[in-house]
């Protein structure tokens, strides 16, 4: 009676699409890591580590240098490995989210919403990285605006949640 919703139906309804998305991303990652089937020898592995190309099969030959490519001896993981890692983290975190949020009682749903809203302000990290290049260009400006917006979200969200929760705590 405490919980109007058990975790199971939510999981069942959401798991399938999630797995499909994860699978699709994983396939895309593998395709991205192996540009073209013409790479004949062991060199392919090393190339795959440094190069990725569009998943779009109509343009298999356009390579692009991956972010990790710092030059030198490549001990860094391939782009595909990074992506699969990220997708794994994403899917697992969604399940963790379902498990813990289902235990929040309805009486706290508004603070839950404003609090989780503040957490979604984590995009402020991306905004800081985007604005901090040291150059004064359009990208830095967009980043700075994003920092302002995201930090309104963060500070406003945590503070208003705190205000609300104090009212619940009084008793």
């Amino acid at each position: 009676m405490k919980r109007p919703l058990s975790a199971l139906p939510t999981l069942r309804k959401t798991a399938l699409p999630l797995l499909l998305v994860a699978g699709w991303l994983a396939v895309a990652a593998v395709v991205a890591a192996h540009p073209g089937h013409d790479a004949p020898d062991g060199d392919a592995g090393r190339r795959a580590a440094k190069v990725s190309s569009p998943a779009d099969s109509s343009k298999p030959s356009v390579p692009s240098i991956s972010k990790e490519d710092g030059g030198g001896i490549s001990a860094k993981p391939s782009r595909a490995a990074v992506l699969i890692g990220s997708v794994t983290v994403f899917v697992l975190a969604v399940f963790v989210g379902f498990e813990i949020i289902n235990k929040v009682p309805p009486t706290l749903h508004t603070p839950l919403m404003s609090g989780s809203n503040a957490i979604s302000g984590i995009t402020v990290v991306g905004a800081i990285l985007a604005s901090g290049s040291g150059r004064w260009d359009a990208a830095a400006l967009l980043g700075a605006v994003a920092v302002v917006l995201a930090n309104i979200n963060v500070v406003g969200g945590f503070l208003v949640t705190h205000r609300m929760l104090l009212m619940f705590k009084k008793r």
Partner: peptide, 24 residues
Amino acid sequence: TGFVIDNNGLIISGSLVGASGVIL
């Protein structure tokens, strides 16, 4: 955004909030 800048912290936090919104 976490996928854009390759940051697992953003991916975890974002998907927690995503899951919370879906449940509500």
